[in-house]
Design a protein around this nucleic acid. Structure first.
Length: 538
RNA sequence: GCCGGCGUGGCUCAGUUGGUUAGAGCGGCGGAUUCAUAACCCGCAGGUCGUUGGUUCAAGUCCAACCGCCGGCACCA
């Protein structure tokens, strides 16, 4: 079934923390997915935003003696800035403190309550206010008592006995298991799917969805009991629907929701798998809503020693002999938006963790972009300027097509074919691999034909022009294939390669689409080589 | 403890349903070349494919056990 539209989301980022490379990774991954769909002419909606309620936000605001909303405004702006600097093209940016969102959460809660899927129950146990959750007696005892099992050094727990509202999540366990097993609701990669199924096999409990307002006021009040606010995750998850007009009274909004829901892909980090693969779908079932088609749980970027980039450790920390971890600001400063995006987009196959440091990023950017794409563009356009007066000479007669020449064409076609397959595969790696082979094919072709020598004789000149033309055409398709990853460089390169007017993939992806006589641009230096001295520290 | 995954040349990894001399990229070394961003091109790395046993005419490629690492879950303290 061909996709007629594509709705992709990132998690909404929690404003308690400043944006770091992990956020950038998720955002770029989703952006690249959105970009490939747009390139193919598929209507695309890409949503991201910020998660602004909850205990940590309330506490941080209190510590800094500012209003929670002020803190949210400040932090949301940081995330917005990051997206801009990364050239991420999200279609919307939702904030959970916006009325359009809180109104939806309120309605959802009322509806769940009215349907009998929310009930009041008594609970007594150890509560960690910072983590906003209860722990079992055993968990707490394991820590020696009194401390939070998750962050014993930082958080204390308190004994609480209170009434709370619960969502009848257990009721939907069987349906959820079936949806996952049959891939009606895909959990990707397979490893994560198995984890969720294993989790479900042990039986689901109900989910506590209320927090006592005396402790936590920064949240959406329960419409049926204002002594409580909504558990932050239940609040947060509904952003995926509130932002596209869910439950809106307005007709146009209503239609917008019908158009985009269900989401095609929720891109998430593996740390929030349970919320997205269990809480979210069961909540949707309770509301009688369709499930998203896929949750894609990616891995983490790790520091050079294999440690996780954590919020408490702060990236960039070079203590204890760990190589400095590049900060997102640092990456952008040194490699620019495109270089940073290239690294992030090719850093790992979604699913696995990947260690990285400055050297790894530098090598990848230099090899693929400076030595590869950039150098090829530069040398070809320089040749074209000399041998063809800066005008595309046309592909010439087809009767003299040698092996390397045909390979150049085939490699470029393979790259745009990988792009066409993207909606099915969602495989950025495959596109990148095809582009790398394409660049290599051009290099071999040039080496084989040596147009710089042919050009020196009148007899050789026509052949040189054909070699240059085929290479340029190939490069043009390769550029098209990486457009969603390298938006800035693509624009420059496309113009330099002679294409004008609005981008039209169907036309431009044809080998030979560039008309003879098209005006070529000056040789660009798209990706300057990054020297070792350009990276911070030693 | 249970479930799942992984362990291939310095690094990162490919290796179809088991079958000729186990591959690629990066780094390193040597060569060629100069159209290009010290780039590109060519050649080199002799790795017992974690260990030990099996199945088979034939096993990184299947089975078992073990070792190590990683996820998830559980339990004890």
């Amino acid at each position: 079934m061909p996709n007629t539209r594509f709705y992709v989301t990132t998690p909404i980022y929690y404003v308690n923390d400043r944006p770091h490379t992990g956020h950038a990774y998720t955002s770029v991954l989703a952006d690249v997915m959105a970009g490939y769909h747009r390139l193919l002419g598929i209507d695309t909606w890409f949503l991201t935003g910020t998660d602004e309620h909850g205990q940590k936000v309330q506490d941080s605001a209190a510590e800094r003696d500012v209003a929670p909303q002020a803190l949210c405004d400040e932090m949301a702006a940081h995330f917005g800035d990051l997206l801009e600097r990364l050239r991420v093209r999200n279609d919307d940016f939702v904030r959970t403190t916006e009325p359009r969102h809180t109104a939806v959460v309120t309605q959802v809660l009322a509806e769940l309550h009215a349907r009998g899927d929310v009930y009041l129950d008594h609970y007594e146990g150890w509560y960690c206010a910072r983590c906003e959750r209860y722990w079992t007696d055993r968990d707490v005892e394991e820590q020696g008592g009194g401390r939070c099992p998750d962050q014993p050094e930082l958080h204390g727990v308190e004994r609480l006995a209170e009434e709370n509202y619960y969502f009848r999540m257990s009721k939907y366990a069987d349906r959820l298991r079936e949806a996952i097993e049959t891939d009606v609701f895909r959990v990707h990669p397979e490893k994560r799917k198995n984890e969720v199924l294993g989790f479900l096999k042990k039986g689901l409990t109900d989910l506590c969805i209320s927090r006592n307002r005396e402790r936590l006021s920064w949240g959406v009040p329960l419409p049926f009991d204002d002594k409580y606010v909504c558990y932050v995750w239940v609040d947060a998850l509904f952003n995926y629907k509130s932002a596209i007009g869910y439950l809106a009274a307005d007709d146009a909004e209503h239609e917008r929701h019908a158009r985009w829901w269900p989401a095609d892909v929720h891109v998430i980090g593996k740390d929030i798998l349970t919320t997205h693969a269990v809480y979210w779908p069961t909540l949707l079932m309770a509301m009688g809503e369709a499930l998203p088609r896929m949750v894609l749980a990616h891995g983490w970027l790790l520091d050079s020693r294999g440690g996780k980039l954590s919020k408490t450790k702060r990236e960039g920390d070079d203590a204890e002999g760990v190589l400095p971890v590049p900060t997102i600001d640092g990456l952008l400063d040194v490699f620019g938006a495109d270089g940073t995006r290239w690294f992030l987009a090719t850093a790992m196959k979604p699913g696995d963790d990947t260690a990285f440091d400055w050297t790894i990023v530098r090598e990848r950017v230099n090899t693929d972009l400076a030595n590869g794409l950039g150098n090829t563009a530069n040398r070809l356009l320089k040749m074209a300027a000399g041998a063809c007066d800066g005008v595309f000479p046309g592909l010439g007669e087809d009767d003299d097509v040698g092996e390397t020449q045909e390979r150049v064409r085939a490699a470029a076609v393979a790259a745009v074919d990988a792009v066409r397959a993207f909606p099915e595969t969602l495989d950025v790696t495959a596109v990148v691999a095809a582009v790398r082979s394409g660049v290599a094919a051009i290099s071999l072709f040039l080496q084989d034909e040596k147009p710089w020598k042919l050009v020196k004789t009148d007899d050789g000149l026509p052949r040189a022009r054909i070699v240059i033309a085929w290479s340029l055409e190939s490069l043009r398709l390769l550029a098209l294939a990486v457009h969603p990853i390298l938006p800035e460089s693509f624009a420059t390169l496309r113009t330099a390669l002679g294409m004008t007017g609005d981008l039209d993939f169907a036309r431009e992806s044809q080998f030979g689409a560039l008309p003879e006589g098209a005006r070529l641009g000056a040789p660009p230096n798209l990706f300057p080589r990054i020297g070792a001295d350009a990276i911070p520290s030693a």
